[in-house]
Each structure stands twice: as C-alpha cells, then as structure tokens.
Design a protein around this nucleic acid. Structure first.
Lengths: 327, 327
DNA sequence: TTGAAAGCGCTAACAT
DNA sequence: ATGTTAGCGCTTTCAA
C-alpha cells in the first residue's frame, strides 16, 4: 500500500505538503500539486481512511438505524439518504433493530464505537422512550430522526404530514359524494396514526359532518382486522373508509366485495402508504402516499447542513379506482 | 473519551497490559484482568475502533455491494447476511451501484479505502466483466459473490438454482396446457439470466417443443420492456411466457389484458423473484421464488469460514392464478 | 506476567 | 508555500 510518505520521498518533499495537496488545501503551489497528483496516480495511491479518521477523531460513516431494512418504506428512506450522503463523501452503515430495544442499543453502541459522523434513526417499536439514545450518542454525535421520532430528543426530525394527508384523503371521499365516511385508525401509540385520525376528523367537522367514535375503528393495520372492521363499518351505515394503512384497506376491500358491495360504486376506500400492490390490484386502490425517498433525502440534508428543526414531508394522494366514481 | 492509557494510569500499570486484558489475551493475571475490567466499566471505556483498525491494518466492516437496496430481493439478502455478520462482530457497510459500472467502481474503491474485512457483491448489469473487481479488491480483500456472479473471479459464489427453477417453471406451463411458451429473458451479461434461459430452452427441447430465438425476448426486466415484448410474443404466436423477472412479467400482464387477452385462460405467465406484489395483484402472479434471506446467510457464512466453493440455493415455484387453468 | 518502545498513516498547529 | 513536530489510541514485538 502506497502512503503519502512514499509520495513525498519520491518527490523530495514532506508528507505535510502531500497531505495538503491531496485534500485540496489552497496552501499548495499549483505546480507542486500537479506533480503530487501525478505521482499519486502513478503509484496508485489511495488514502488510508482509517489513519485519516483516527487523526481527525471521526469517521466519514453515517449510521442509519431502522427497524427492518427489507420493509419497502425503510429501504427507500435509506436509498434516498444514501444518494445524498455518498455525493457528500460519506458512507452509510446500516443497522437493523428488528423492532427490539436491545438490538437498538447494540446498534447505537456499534455506531458510537465506530465514531460515526452522525446517526439517522427511526426507532424500534420496542423502544418506549428515548433515554438510551441520548445516553449512547451523547453530545457529540449528531442525530436525525425520521418517521418515528421522540420529540424530547435534540436534533432534526423528518416526519410526514399525516394530518394534512388524512384531511385531503377524507375531503376527496367527500367530494366523490360518499355520505358517511369512517376510518380504520391504526394504533394510537404512534403519533403518525394519531395525526391521521385527527386529520380525518377535522375534514369531516369542517363541513359539518359527524365524526363520532362509532365510525372509528382502532388497532386495524393488517388485512384480518381490516376485514372485521369493514363489516362493522357497513353496519354502522358507512359508505366509505379512510384507512390509515394499506393492508387494513386491502382486508376491507376483500370483505366488502365478498358481501357483494361494489367498489367504488357502493363504497369508497382510500388506504395509506401507497404500497406497490395498491396500484396493481383490481380494483386498484387509492392511497395516501408516503414519500420515503424524499424523507431519506431530507434527513441526509438535515445532517449535512446541521439543521435541527422539524421537517414535514408532504404526502400525496394517489387517486385510483377504489374511490373514484367517475372511473 | 476514555482510553486504555487512562485506565492504565488509574491502575498504575501500562497500556500494553490493559490492551491485552481487554482483548482477551491469556497472558494476563486473572486478578489484574478483573481490576482492569472493573475500572474500564467504571470509567465507561469503549475501544476506539479507528485506532484499533489502523494498528491492525483492517476494519471489522464487511462491505455489501448491490444494485439497489430497495429491491426486495437485495434488501432481504442484506438482512440475512447482516444477521450472521453482526453476531460475529462485524458491521455491514452497504453500497448501491444503481446498475452502473462507474458506481460499482466507486463503491469498491470506498470499501477498499475503508480496508473492509471482506466484500459481498452482486454486480451491476453495467459491469460486463470482472476486471475492475479484481483490480480494486486485489489479493487481500476476500470476496463473496451472490446471485450475479463472475465465475472467473476467486472466492465463494452463492447462486440460485436458476437452471432447475426455470426448467420447472416452464414444465409447469407445459403441464397447464400452454402450447407455445416464449421467454422474457433479461440480460445475458448476467449468468443468472443466462441460466434461466438455458433452463427454459431445455425444458422445451426435452419434450420436443420449439425453443427458437424468435420467442426469446432479451433485455427485458422492467415493466415497460415487458409490455413491448409481450406484444411481440403475441404476434409470434405465443400463448405463455416464462419471465426471468417479476417486473417484466407485470408489464406483460398489463399489456396483454389491455388488448383483451385473458389471463390465464388465453395466456399463461410465470415471473421470477416472488416479489410481494405478485401475490396481491389481480390476477395473482405465479412466480419462481428466490430465497434471498438464505442466500445472504450463506454468503455471510462463506465469508466467515473462508470457504470458496459455489453454493447453490434452491428456488421454489409459487403457482398462482396467472398460470393456473384450473383456478 | 508485565513493561518499554515503536509505529500504523495521516493531519494540523506552529514555525519558517 | 512548505517544513517541523507532535500525536490520534491502539497493538505488538521484544525484553525483563
């Protein structure tokens, strides 16, 4: 392995100058810089990052901690973050928590031991508070949270505009002429689901419609619970549902159709997350899209610029057959 | 940050001894080791990995290079690899190539500069040969290839049983009564696609069917190209397609249905990869499932054990509506 | 069983 | 514009 010392020796100068030249310092004569670059290329020099990092006290690695990398949402966030971080000269170290508190602690420790330049984190369901995160990262490792955030932690937070999105989804159902619009609301332990519920409610209240608890169906995020809830919604007189998740919406559609309810003629459905199957099923499902790639980019940006406010990424309503009378 | 020097000072011994104790050397008196461990815990010591790595000349990071992390297949491979590697004390650094040769070169350079302990690689479509890989990684960074492998490179290779899988998928279409079975073949720069093509051909030849070039459609892996190819396949008299990818198969289904061709009554489709949308779409898509999580584990295993043979992971045909006359 | 000493390759404050 | 110097924190011979 070629070192700057060897380059310096070959050129009869000192390592300092070589170091400066190679890291783009302006304090090197153009002529010297050229000679150095040429010699470096000739010898096939490549900077030893470990030495550089040790000296600088930090690495060019950014840690990304997510519950599960193979979930579409998270892999897209990572993808978005990586695109910006790589451009800026950082590498991305990925850790999965599998939704477990202990794995999250382990991941954060690993990142700290690697003296990462920063951490992008979406915490595990198993982490009920933020103490361990603050303890492990301490003051000197910048943290950016996304999607699932602890608001008592310092640093930037990137979240979706769940209120606004749910509001628009519900307003869309109203505009399509549906009369009684319920909601499959998900888990209230998550701020994201909570905000979607609030958005749904506000959209109805703003036009003088009822938004009572009898048409709110909690803890529904998988097809099975979606199916059951849809049946109850039907009994409660609903003719549309805004669903805080795509999988519960999928269950709802299945259940309704198997009762002979036509979608969208008799009943409208809007899901949330825009999972890839929503566009592919028949009837295709309207869905309130998250924007994971963009969230990843914004998180990376916040880290790179040292920002620390809350960044709200808009959601986008994808109108498809399941809520569209005119199709 | 606490260092071994501080621990040594606090105990009136030398850093050498502390280093030995903390890295589990037997050349330390039990009593001393205990005192050291206690003091380390008390001061909240954590090893500076950068310094350790510099001294040892290598890091505890394993690089994983994939075309795109947000593709289900790859994110599952990574997930599988990570589970084993983390247990063994390695971290995983992920790089995407976006199927581009230049990005692959950049990624491999980054990994080399980080002096990674090893590299798990599935090369980009844009890499038509292996020269750059050998050049950049050289002799001292162990390489394990998976899925898309260059057979002229040293090191372990983890592949799917593409020949066998494609053979079975094609035989299944035959058994379902389809008469003229074409193939959307993908890119021949990849051995995986090549083997699928060979499997398709062999299955047809073995029963005396034609498998001519007029029903082979190359370079089809995204919906758009799948759409176009499906139209040509129809003109060529095909009534079924074995598709070497799920996305081209998806495009094919869309194109065929929009022409009024019924699936599976008029035309049978089998995709490859078992992406999650295949089970959820209507009609659900038959697909030849890869086993990405297992492939990731096997790749990690090969790296950890220093193995270097070829490991074949079986594929599994998931029969769904798109190829099933009896449904 | 422990210590002393050297150095991995790089960077940066300080000098010239 | 370049050189001198010192050291980041750790590991590992070699010596005691």
């Amino acid at each position: 392995m070629v070192t700057i010392t060897q380059i310096a020796a070959a050129l009869g100068i000192t390592p300092s100058t070589v170091s400066r030249a190679l890291s783009g310092s302006p304090r090197v004569k153009e002529e010297t810089r050229l000679a150095i670059e040429q010699k470096a290329a000739e010898l096939g020099y490549e900077r030893n990052i470990m030495a550089s990092n040790l000296r600088k006290g930090r690495s060019d690695i950014v840690g990304v901690v997510v519950p599960r990398i193979h979930r579409e949402f998270f892999s897209n966030v990572i993808s978005g973050a990586e695109s910006l971080l790589n451009e800026a000269g950082y590498s991305v170290l990925i850790c999965q928590t599998h939704e477990r508190f202990e794995d999250e602690v382990k991941a954060l420790r690993t990142l700290r031991n690697n003296r990462v330049a920063g951490v992008l984190l979406s915490h595990a369901i198993g982490s009920s508070d933020s103490a361990h995160i603050r303890d492990i990262l301490g003051r000197d490792i910048p943290l950016v949270q996304f999607d699932r955030v602890f608001s008592d932690l310092p640093g930037a937070k990137v979240v979706s505009n769940n209120f606004q999105g749910a509001y628009e989804a519900t307003a869309h159902l109203v505009a399509q002429g549906y009369r009684r619009i319920g909601t499959l609301a998900g888990y209230m332990s998550s701020e994201a689901y909570e905000q979607r519920l609030v958005g749904w409610r506000q959209a109805l209240l703003d036009i003088g419609r009822s938004a009572g608890e009898e048409i709110v169906f909690y803890d529904t995020i998988v097809p099975e619970t979606g199916r059951e809830a849809a049946m109850k919604a039907l009994s409660a007189g609903c003719d549309a549902l805004y669903c805080a998740g795509d999988f519960s919406a999928l269950g709802a559609i299945e259940a309704l159709r198997s009762c002979g309810v036509r979608i969208p003629q008799d009943f409208g459905i809007v899901g949330t997350a825009n999972e890839s199957f929503t566009a592919l099923m028949t009837p295709s499902m309207s869905s309130l899209a998250l924007n994971p790639y963009e969230m990843g980019r914004r998180a990376a940006e916040a880290f790179l610029n040292g920002d620390d406010g809350t960044i709200v990424v808009p959601m986008e309503l994808k109108i498809r057959e399941s809520s569209n009378h005119s199709l």
